[in-house]
Design a protein around this nucleic acid. Structure first.
Lengths: 250, 250
DNA sequence: GAGTCTATCTCGGAA
DNA sequence: TTCCGAGGTAGACTC
């Protein structure tokens, strides 16, 4: 029996089922009219409304309203949850240590209480990240331009890390800034800071912003600063080679 | 009847209940063994596992694993969801326009399908935001130091917005950077950029980072740059006056 | 609609 | 453990 369900349970029934589910490290799902108070990194109060409450086996606790992707109140994995009855009312409590945080939910009326002994071994396979773009460019440097040779990756400078450092066919230094989404002015500013740092030493340093697209304002600033743009889509293969390094090509 | 529930439904029963719930703009909650494919801003694939699926009245769609606060796959509010049966299997689909994104979930086995006609009019009341800190400092400038006078808020400069601009008792310009959480090196860099911009014009500009705490590295950088730190906790009152402006004090 | 910024951001990786 | 940066960030707000 993977699933246990109770419709419109009494307070005691709800209490027992929830405690049972937590103890068995099940996925506990509750539909209820509730209110919530949180105190920790911030402080919040949520008045009564009908919501979805979820307690996960890893200690995650969430209160979801009828809108938005984000929970309205929550606690992260490893929080300790329990149910208790006080003055005839059912409460849920989730406590986190370091930082000390406490979320208390008062259940005014439970419509559905259930738990689910979920088994889930798989992780998400995802493609289209900045890291994948870097891998792709290291493996296919001509995507930047003919004759481009990468020299270093995540190269540390005062103002941060240069995504890819390389040289063009004339031996001029090239600073590559990667963005996996549309690039804004902040990306241009970041690239400019890197280039300025190098230009102090020597001239002829090229700065290239690589992204699938760019905002209008960012393109204007880029041109003003004498920087370049390469339109490149992040790769879409789900099983990209992890751990591609420059060693393979130098 | 606020709640409708079916345990271990057949494919057709599950299909009908889910479509019914979506049409009635209910909160649809499903416990099922499923796999998922996403294509849009990125691309992802999730192999079979036992999960919680939620469809909200506002169009939000979520697939939750047995761990983590964030859903493993999701679509934002205003997405269009539907269920359908293809080659004897039950599928859920959620589509978003602009950007074009599609999430498809195949239900291999539904353990629990339910929907809940939730009513929830209340919004979260929360305290402890950066904005509240700004309000507090505008109302009590001496928290920065004796004689401090705020002059402008969200003051636009080339590299962004200065949280609070003011003058000390000697008439020297002060640039205040607020953080509601522990400040890191990025906050110091940000403050430094603002101060540098002003120092081009005139010397004697003071930069002050205001936060409840600061990382070790950030404090070192702050001292190197001749900037200052004020340890201030964000306010905890839940009903802070919204819309406090400088007009009330100048 | 596009751009910018905060967040109880969350989450993963590195020092 | 602490810290830093990426994210399909989400969500709020301004222009």
């Amino acid at each position: 029996m993977k699933c246990k369900v109770s419709e419109n349970p009494s307070i005691k029934e709800a209490y027992r089922l929830i405690e049972d589910g937590i103890r068995k490290r099940a996925l506990v799902v509750i539909l209820a009219c509730c209110s919530a108070s949180y105190e920790g990194r911030a402080r919040s109060r949520l008045d009564a409304g009908e919501r979805l409450i979820v307690i996960k086996p890893d200690g995650t606790f969430m209160v979801h309203q009828d809108r938005k992707v984000d929970p309205v109140n929550w606690q992260p994995p490893k929080s300790r949850s329990r149910a208790y009855i006080k003055r005839g009312s059912l409460y849920l409590e989730s406590i986190r240590r370091d930082p000390e945080e406490r979320l208390e939910v008062e259940i005014h009326e439970a419509h559905l209480v259930s738990y689910y002994l979920a088994r889930d071994v798989h992780d998400l396979m995802v493609a289209g990240h900045e890291n994948d773009m870097g891998d792709m460019i290291i493996m296919h440097p001509h995507l930047i331009e003919k004759g481009f040779r990468p020299v270093a990756r995540e190269y540390a400078v005062t103002s941060g890390f240069i995504d890819i450092l390389g040289k063009d066919e004339n031996g001029s230094l090239m600073i590559i800034e990667l963005k996996s989404r549309k690039a804004g002015v902040s990306a241009v500013k970041q690239l400019k800071r890197y280039v300025d740092e190098f230009r102090e030493d020597r001239v002829g340093v090229r700065g290239v912003l690589v992204a699938p697209s760019i905002t209008h304002d960012a393109m204007e600033m880029l041109e003003e600063e004498g920087l370049e743009f390469r339109e490149i889509e992040p790769p879409r293969e789900l099983r990209s080679n992890r751990g591609v390094t420059l060693d393979n090509f130098l």
